[in-house]
Simulated scan of single mutants.
Amino acid sequence: MEKWKKGMLVGAALGLLVSLIDRQEREKVKDYSRNMKNEVRQVYSQPSQAITQLRTKLHDVTRGTDRVIQQLDQLESFFNKYDNRK
């Protein structure tokens, strides 16, 4: 492994250890780790449900993006009318 990669790993490990000195931070890390473990288990046990949820989220994002594009088109039309009046 190259020196800079080792240095980055050592730095990350030291940063993690230093941040875990604080009790509240340790609790946050434990809670986050537990939640991630549970989510991974759920995805592993029910992959079709995870795919359905992902599909729903992507659909929501697409709908939101479509709305933004429509609003931008309306603004562009408004400004084009304003520019043409001059």
Rank of each mutant, 00 (worst) to 15 (best):
M8R: 15
M8D: 12
V10D: 07
V10Y: 02
G11K: 05
A12S: 07
A12R: 08
A13W: 01
L14H: 00
G15F: 05
L17D: 03
L17H: 06
V18S: 03
V18F: 05
S19A: 11
L20A: 15
I21F: 04
I21V: 14
D22V: 08
R23P: 01
Q24N: 15
Q24K: 15
E25F: 15
E27V: 15
E27Y: 07
E27K: 15
K28V: 07
V29A: 15
V29Q: 10
V29H: 10
K30H: 11
D31W: 04
D31R: 15
Y32C: 06
S33G: 03
S33Q: 07
R34P: 00
N35Q: 14
M36W: 04
E39L: 11
E39A: 05
V40M: 13
V40A: 13
V40Y: 07
V40T: 08
V40H: 03
R41S: 13
R41K: 14
Q42E: 14
Q42F: 02
V43G: 00
Q46F: 07
Q46V: 03
P47V: 05
A50L: 04
A50E: 06
I51C: 02
I51M: 10
T52V: 06
Q53N: 14
Q53W: 04
L54K: 11
R55Y: 04
T56M: 07
K57W: 01
K57I: 03
L58H: 08
L58F: 11
H59D: 11
H59Y: 09
V61P: 00
T62R: 13
T62Y: 10
T62Q: 13
R63C: 04
G64V: 00
T65C: 01
T65N: 03
T65Y: 01
D66C: 02
D66K: 09
D66A: 12
R67H: 09
R67T: 08
V68L: 14
I69N: 06
Q70R: 11
Q71A: 12
Q71C: 01
Q71R: 12
Q71H: 09
D73Q: 15
D73S: 13
